[in-house]
Nucleic acid binder design. Structure first.
Lengths: 186, 186
DNA sequence: CTTACCATGTAAGCTGTTACATGATTGT
DNA sequence: ACAATCATGTAACAGCTTACATGGTAAG
């Protein structure tokens, strides 16, 4: 049996407010998408499953004349399920897969100039992501001190600071490693 | 079509030396398992696929009287395929999934004492991992300067330093975040 | 003798991606 | 008109995990 993480991610998102499948798809393109995501095709299927498990309920909202938005709301059962899942500590850590580092493990088979190109590509992507995350942080929290952040925004704060910390560390390591590559003859 | 990453990971591992499916399974429990891994059930299937694609060849080695080890070796085609794959820059970054941070996004629904327990649990797991990685580094590279590391070991060096950097950053962020949690009333 | 490890494989089921398919709404 | 975005869904396939299944070897 799988761990049904998407199931609980959706329950969590619906705990903030009622949403459609389309809305949920959009959420995974925002900050939380740094740590979990899914495509709409999977989300619509999961929503049907949750509905049949009575963890969520459905109602229709109209967008204009004909366009139906199927809105979903947590049931009390769904809220209970979410709360139970949240407090269970995870005993093990999943492999945090990273194809760039996997490739680097086989660096012996990559020509030196190509190695530098791969590093620069990764540096550009990661730097752009970091800049985007910092901008998000500024827009939402500005110069606010963490102790003064609203309880409703605390989850958002942690997700953003974690994502920023992850990318900062990545970029720093890339810089250091590229320096080593450039200095070495191999 | 998928990206066939396991396929190339196996080709990469076989580029170092001939291995059995069991050996490859073992490799994914070592350092490279920090960035990619697979279970034996998947590996045996992938090896058959690679064999039918003529990217690897097979021979039998005996362990004792009756126990057969099916050894695999890169073919020249396989080596070419690997080298081609290695130099292609990845345009996008996959979501680096992390269930702990996902849960934290829904912190509003976790009682304060349980939040602290979750943090401490994560701190213990990550610290242990970091200690293990540092020990590995010491054993393999000791006080050696990066510019003096053997070309054969360079991939290993980058994978280990990246894993250490990742865990250091994670632990630091956990400490800072737990401080905030403890100071806040919510 | 018994435990841990070596060694390979299949089956069932769940998770996730890509592609196919359709139609409405909003802004230019 | 046209494009971008809103909105929902299914089908086929690929990736991955868990469980089932079997047997050999080495050390105490």
């Amino acid at each position: 049996m799988g761990k049904r993480i998407l199931k609980h991610a959706i329950l969590g998102l619906l705990s903030k407010k009622d949403m459609s499948g389309y809305d949920i798809t959009g959420e995974f393109k925002e900050e939380i998408g740094q740590f979990w995501s899914a495509k709409h095709s999977q989300i619509y299927i999961e929503l049907k499953k949750l509905l049949s498990e009575n963890l969520i309920s459905q109602y229709i909202e109209m967008s204009g004349e004909k366009l139906e938005r199927k809105m979903y709301r947590l049931t009390s059962e769904g809220k209970k399920e979410l709360e139970q899942w949240l407090v269970v500590p995870d005993e093990t850590i999943e492999t945090e897969k990273d194809v760039f580092i996997l490739k680097l493990y086989f660096i012996k088979h990559i020509p030196k100039d190509k190695v530098e190109a791969l590093f620069r590509n990764q540096f550009n992507i990661r730097s752009a992501k970091l800049a985007y995350l910092r901008e998000q942080y500024q827009q939402i929290f500005g110069e606010q001190h963490p102790l003064e952040i609203d309880a409703d925004q605390l989850g958002h704060y942690f997700v953003l600071t974690k994502a920023i910390s992850r990318e900062e560390s990545y970029v720093k390591w890339l810089e250091q490693s590229l320096e080593i590559i450039k200095k070495r003859e191999y």
